[in-house]
Design a protein around this nucleic acid. Sequence first.
RNA 1: GCCGAUAUAGCACAGCAGGUAGUGCACUUCACUCGUAAUGAAGGGGUCAUCGGUUCGAAUCCGAUUAUCGGCUCCA
Length: 586
Amino acid sequence: MKVIYRDNEVREGSFEEAWVKEAFWHTTAHVLAQAVKRLYPDTKCAIGPAIEQGFYYDFEFSFPFGDEHRKAVEEEMRKIVKESLSLNAYEVSREEAVRYMREREESYKLSLIDDLPKDAAISFYRQGEYAEFCAGPHISNTCHIKAFQLLSIAGAYWRGDEKNRMLTRIYGISFPKASELEQFLKMREEIKLRDHRKIGKELGIFMLAKQGPGFPIFLPKGMVLKNILIDYWREVHSREGYMEISTPIMLERTLWETSGHWEHYRENMYTTEIEGVDFAIKPMSCPGGMLVYQSAPRSYRELPMRLGELGICHRYEKSGQLHGLMRVRAFTQDDAHIFMTEEQMIPEIQNVARLIDEVYSRFGFSYHVELSTRPDDSIGSDEEWEQATKALQEAMDAIHVAYKINEGDGAFYGPKLDFHLQDSIGRTWQCGTIQLDFQLPRRFGAEYTGEDGKTRRPVMIHRVLFGSIERFIGILLEHYAGKFPLWLAPVQVKVLSLAKRSNEYAKEVADELSRMGIRCETDERSEKIGFKIREAQLDKVPYMAIVGQNEIDAQTVSVRKRDGGDLGSMTVEQFAGLLRQEIRTR
RNA sequence: GCCGAUAUAGCACAGCAGGUAGUGCACUUCACUCGUAAUGAAGGGGUCAUCGGUUCGAAUCCGAUUAUCGGCUCCA
């Protein structure tokens, strides 16, 4: 396939290569714009880039663009592809470019041209009657776009700013072969099947009630899962020298004023009033942690002081951004606040990073790290921000962790390292974060007595591993597609009774397993064994123990594994041993 | 919050030139007591999201509200 650059240089490449793909999708976006202009000439075009998976184009339509219109546009695009229009690039003067776009009343294009440096050469690409101001590159002819689909219609703000007008964004995908499109659509279906909202409902993990938008309800099995994660969390934290605390969900306004939340985070906080005094429900646990630190005079001997808290935080999220368990209004943050001396900063940051690595590895996640720097709305001096940012960088560099920098994305009180984990189908989610904070200790007047007897100010780390337990569970559901490993499965074994006369024995087996700490259920309904197996399989229970007359006689169970089928018969002891072995190796 | 779409039984869906609701699974009961992914039969269950409008008559047409879905913005 030929790719044409703005100076009309031609490079040959295959679709598999990323730069060719990008040109291919970008060209499809132009075809989309061309089709739209043919059908609805008064439409204004904004931008239409290639993205990670396909492309989009933003338009300002003079009418609500719906599904019927999408189909019509697809039809027109098909025509354009059949017309085999070749693309070529040419340069025009700035005046000419402006005149061209002004004639067509393309106000967004004019604004884009306006952004270009005065002396920049302005390139256009043309295909048939359609020409667009564009830096390219593009593929040489529309005929290569054999298979495409417009995937969805969405709103998007002009230049991504919610103060601007909302445009209509059309997303699409395209390929040189129909089979590739089919494969892509199949993959999309697969992702839909793994959706935690679907699986979470099927497996009885959580629900969302109409009366509580964004406030998830954990069902019995979901609660088992949540508690397993919490047990695990306690296990590693106590090993790492953390002390657990619990601070109130609601605290007085004055505290939030001291912390800066009242000024910088208020629009996300729920507030109320008690006996004429303003209170706020916590969106974060740090001020509570601060109160604990402040509850006694502190010595350098106590530092680093690691205070962990599973705090239930409430944040007002706008209705349109709620999403299953991933984005909610109430969530359990597996928070910890570490108070330390400046010398302890780097080793403590590294400890947390290592802990995050250990925890993510346990679940089979790979991850990448991003460093977010000072945002516009923030508190503290430049020197402090620089010192904190440098500490985070140094800590990571020393243990050879690579990170990408996100300018201006930090918390209002300090810079942060964000840990984005990747699930089994390649999507990434921000979970863990390590935030370094000089501000809260100062605002609260936190102190400790140093070795020399002098009063000093501690530095503070805010950090989470899971991020929020709710989101983490959502990610786990999709990561495992509901097929939890044995140690996480809410039900580990289902004992299936073959017939009425084996019900008693089935119960005995289940009791014995329960006594050994195995989470199990019994199915003694008068159904065929094939039916019970099918149900247990659909419930994604890791192990089934099937018992009938043969097992009663031999005092055994027949074991069937969710991922692996019939394992033959064995004693309950042996079965439990096998389970313990698997849990131990996790 | 914004743009677009959707809302029918616990779940998945059908019904829509407007004439007051159906299918499958699930649930209950009965029969069967069964050997590794669906035994058969009978029965119960819905103010068609909510409120209002048009109409002799609305699940169906129109409007508002709420929730949800795909995005944008924002974020753990």
